[in-house]
Amino acid sequence: MPDGASPPLSEKRLIEAVAARYAGASRFTRGYVGSKLRRDPSTAALLALAQREGGLGQVADLGCGRGQLALALLLSGAASGVVGLDYEEAKVAEARAAGAGLAARFIRADLTAARVPDCDTALMVDVLYQLPEAAQAPLLDRVAAAARRRVVLRLFDPGRGWRSTLGMAMERAGRAIRRDGAAVRPMPVAEVSARLAGAGFTSEVTPCWAGTPLPNVLLVAERAA
């Protein structure tokens, strides 16, 4: 480490630093942000990926929610800047407030039609399967066109046996409680990989469900040199 350089934050200190930026948010949001970053295995997976790759550069976080993952990437040095898009205005407002003073922009957008910002890394965590089936492939095409270096997706894998069966049951129950009439039709992971391959990316898929019974996988697609 060069003389005078600050050591990287530990994951615990990083989560504390991100959570502190939501001090003015609702009690629910304050609890949610820290819990989500601690418990969701995508946090550690993305920080590890950034360390291996020497950073993710400019990141487009699609379906960013309250922005806590985008801010964790920024505060850890894993991203040089982020643009977050989400449909829910209340969450976008909380993300904007938390990201004040950082190289972060948060925009309300409908991902079924929105332009994907040009970026080094396009990121979608638990987003694709939430969209109507007809919107999934067109969004992937827009993501592939916008990402200069890589696409990183946390996907619901419908081909993981009992995990997928349980995950589908949980998702349907949740939608029934929320009275969300949308059908749950996640795109097969092989189909996602093939679509990205057609755009010049090579994909690697690894489990991303540590500590949970869900069928979540991390797909990292790198653009060919």
Rank of each mutant, 00 (worst) to 15 (best):
V33A: 13
I15R: 09
R27K: 06
G34F: 14
A135R: 14
G101F: 08
G4L: 07
S164M: 13
G31M: 05
A137M: 10
R39G: 11
V33H: 02
A60L: 05
L85I: 02
I177H: 12
D86R: 01
V82W: 00
P158C: 06
L14Y: 12
S80D: 08
R13V: 09
L85V: 01
R150W: 01
D40T: 14
G99Q: 01
R108D: 05
A97V: 11
D110Q: 07
R148Q: 04
G65T: 01
L123E: 01
A48N: 07
V217P: 14
P2S: 11
P132F: 06
E222A: 14
F106P: 01
P138E: 10
T121C: 11
V184F: 15
V82R: 01
R185G: 05
D40P: 01
I15C: 06
R66K: 11
R179G: 10
V143R: 15
S42N: 08
R172K: 14
G84H: 01
I15D: 02
A145K: 07
T206I: 07
R160C: 12
E204S: 08
S76E: 09
I107Q: 14
I177W: 12
A20E: 12
G34M: 13
T112K: 02
L46M: 10
G77P: 07
L14C: 05
A44Y: 02
L196G: 09
I177Q: 11
L49S: 05
G24N: 14
A210P: 01
P2I: 04
A25R: 11
A60S: 03
A17L: 07
D3I: 02
P207A: 12
Y32G: 00
I107V: 14
L123Q: 08
C64Q: 00
I15W: 02
M187Y: 10
A113T: 12
G63F: 04
C208V: 06
A134C: 11
A145N: 04
A122F: 09
P188E: 12
G77L: 11
S193D: 13
K36C: 09
G63A: 05
D86P: 05
T202W: 01
S193T: 08
T29E: 15
S10F: 03
V184M: 08
R108L: 02
G55K: 04
S35L: 15
A225E: 13
L14A: 11
P7L: 07
Q51M: 03
A114Q: 15
R149M: 06
S193V: 03
A114E: 09
G67F: 02
N216S: 12
V59I: 13
R30P: 00
G81K: 08
E11V: 15
A98C: 04
V151Y: 00
G174Q: 12
A23F: 09
G65V: 00
R195H: 10
P41T: 14
L73C: 10
E89G: 09
R179Y: 06
E88R: 12
A72D: 04
L123Y: 03
V82L: 07
A5V: 14
V18L: 12
A135W: 03
L73G: 05
A134Y: 10
P158V: 13
M124R: 03
A114K: 05
G198K: 06
M170I: 06
W162G: 06
G31P: 03
